[in-house]
């Protein structure tokens, strides 16, 4: 296995690990806030579950980029690029970074927004959709990062 391939794999793993970590923490933060509300008002469960799930998408985006890297490197078709150049390896690594870093941060910040929206929903259940929209705004930047990662990953080889 070449150094390039190793670097590319590390990059791909990081995007799943780090973005997934952000989402895991984020979903947990929102979930904690939601349990408090649900214990008092069980009928809000459905609405709060959606709000809780919102910071979970970044982890999926990170995972998506990892899979794309594996597809590009030929792991899924059974013929991996064993002789990947070091420079290309770094290129893959760099391509994974937008979703790795922004995925982590935006999941954490989105989780804070989700917590506030959950508190708002607790006071005013009809405002759940507004809270959802405001929380989703944070995700825009994770989506932009994801796009940059995708466009780079799919065009290196």
């Amino acid at each position: 296995m070449s150094t390039g391939l190793l670097i590319a794999i590390i990059g791909a793993l990081l995007s799943t690990i780090v973005a997934g970590l952000g989402s895991a923490i984020g979903v947990q933060m929102a979930g904690k806030a939601a349990t408090g509300v649900v214990s008092e008002r069980p009928e809000l469960f459905g609405k709060l579950l959606i709000l809780q799930a919102l910071p979970g998408t970044q982890g999926i985006y990170g995972f998506l980029v990892s899979v794309l890297v594996f597809v590009e490197l030929g792991f899924l078709s059974g013929s991996p690029e064993l002789a990947l150049e070091t420079a290309k390896g770094w290129a893959f690594f760099g391509a994974c970074m937008p979703i790795t870093i922004i995925g982590l941060l935006s999941a954490l910040y989105q989780a804070r927004m989700a917590v506030y929206s959950i508190q708002m929903t607790a006071k005013q259940p009809d405002a759940a959709a507004k809270g959802m929209t405001m929380t989703v705004l944070v995700e825009t930047y994770a989506i932009l990062a994801l796009l940059v990662s995708i466009l780079l990953v799919t065009n290196i080889i």
Partner: peptide, 22 residues
């Protein structure tokens, strides 16, 4: 540019389906 999320979401559901099949 915000509509680029259409690509992102369509791709993410596609790729996860692919991985589940794998």
């Amino acid at each position: 540019l915000s509509y680029s999320r259409i690509l992102a979401l369509s791709m993410s559901s596609g790729v996860i389906a692919l991985v589940m099949n794998l």
